[in-house]
Amino acid sequence: MKHDRKEKNRRKSTILFLAAAVLILAAVTAAGIILEGTATETDFSRTNLAPGTGGLFGTDWMGRDMFARTLAGLSLSIRIGILTAAVSAVIALLAGTAAATLGRRADAVISWCIDLVMGIPHILLVMLISIACGRGFAGVVAGVALSHWPSLARVIRGEVIQLRQAPYILVAEKLGVSKFQNVRRHMIPHLLPQFLTGLILLFPHAILHEASVTFLGFGLSSEQPAIGVILSESMQYLTTGRWWLALFPGLALVLAVILFAVLGERLRQLMDPSSVHE
């Protein structure tokens, strides 16, 4: 073309960003697993050191390295986040599709469940389920997974209802395309972007709720280096001026959450078919 506008290629930068974000999150997760031993190692000769002298993030009252603890905690959070988000998303997919396809009564029941779960404050529900399931890892995972599906289920229900009425699907049926083929060719490709984006956007919620429940003492046990545990323990030392105990783990958590949220948003943009015009 004649004109040579140097404009940045949005798709390219989005893909680069996605790759970088995934890489960072993967690295944090892996590093956390490796450092899990270091994170619980106590060294009473080096207690309460500020960042600098006591490693990058300082040490706590038992001489544990805060950098290792933060990474281990974040890694644990991300793993729990992925697990719970995946379980939640699968529940959402099943519930949403069932509501849209199994007739009016099933729809009423499932929609009622959606409203019910959405009506109870998340944190309360997570706490209740977690206690009922005996706290710890299993409790937290059950709590978060069972409380985060409704909004995605609602989206999927709406999408499936709309797809079932879509003229192009009706026409395909008329042309003798089988039900199964119709689902595979027309339904899944339309649902997949919604589903994946919903899945990724569930991560930040799941991570935050896991950390808050643990912080409140209804989640993971205090031996585990979880962000929630670190934060709640550091509360009693904050007043004595040991700010690094809460600042770095808290900041790391916020950054991870933001990263996931932006990741989901960018992915949505990329998968939107109208993005060819961007």
């Binding site: 404009e7 798709r11 390219k12 993005s275 060819v276 015009h277």
Partner: peptide
């Protein structure tokens, strides 16, 4: 009037 569009992947083209 020209349009800039994405082809497959990240390649772009300008359509008059």
């Amino acid at each position: 009037v020209y349009f800039t569009q994405y082809e497959r992947g990240i390649r772009r083209r300008v359509l008059p």
